[in-house]
Design a binder for these strands. Structure first.
Ligand SMILES: [Mn+2]
Ligand SMILES: [Mn+2]
Ligand SMILES: [Zn+2]
Ligand SMILES: [Zn+2]
Lengths: 133, 133
DNA sequence: TGTTAAATTGTAATGAGTATAAATTGGAAA
DNA sequence: TTTCCAATTTATACTCATTACAATTTAACA
């Protein structure tokens, strides 16, 4: 944990808490969800600090934000490249483990690609099965 | 033009103006950009109407909104499936014409896919060339 | 031409994210 | 250890894209 902090970042309990939360909750939570949940154990926590921590971690490529939801950013521990699926019924955001074979074509066009986001939207497997009772 | 309106939608000058704008400006504009530009020729236009029209057109699959920019929705005439590239330097959003070969895998996992969004971010070709003066 | 449901308009409200400045603190130097 | 200061946290105010609402207007049909 602290090991990650050897990105020249100060080790603060707030940052550790945010990282721990994202590590244990792979649900792509919003900043507000993280804030609300962490606030319970640490009532002095400020929402600004959550935003600041998320920003800092993102700038150091430790986490990433995804824009699959139109109204708010979702946060994700940065692991191997993967895509996301948003269920329009239950709201869950599911990891889709696959590489994108299209990056090459984009690079071939002369653009410098720094980020790749693959978003699918529809009805998730669980909701589909529930429907067929 | 009016032909498209045979989606059971009333033909209003406001809706026609929004459609015409998106047809002539393939720059993935924001709602506010559309509003500001159309307001010049039609000063009585309301911003709410722009939002309403965009919503309605999207619900009828005539246009689509893309979430490549974290702070605001961008709108796009719905043509063949394509991906998008956002230049972090000049802000341009460029069409990347390619299919996504990954949809199948997602469907295979049991999810019902209704939308596919492919977003790349980085530095566009034009900005790269400018850099190398 | 008259009628009415649907669309437009203006205004107020919402809410995610940002700006700011004062108070606190991690961690290096003494 | 103690001191010290730049970095961080906190509380609060603010921005601004989008939505809610209610009154007014209008497209389309008889
Ligand atoms: Mn993920
Ligand atoms: Mn496009
Ligand atoms: Zn679901
Ligand atoms: Zn560019």
């Amino acid at each position: 944990m602290e090991i990650l902090k050897q990105n020249q970042l100060k080790i603060t309990p707030q940052r550790l808490a945010v990282m721990k939360y994202l590590d244990e909750n792979r649900t792509h939570p919003t900043a507000d969800r993280i804030y609300t949940d962490l606030k319970e154990k640490n009532p002095s926590l400020s929402k600004t600090t959550v935003y600041n921590s998320l920003d800092t971690l993102q700038n150091h490529n430790i986490i990433q934000s995804i824009t699959i939801s139109p109204s708010e950013l979702r946060y994700d521990f940065k692991k191997s490249m993967h895509h996301h699926f948003l269920c329009k019924r239950c709201g869950d955001i599911i990891d889709i483990e696959l590489e994108c074979p299209n990056i090459k074509k984009t690079i071939d066009q002369g653009h410098k690609v720094e980020e790749v986001h693959g978003y699918f939207k529809g009805i998730c497997k669980k909701c589909m099965e529930k429907q067929e009772k």
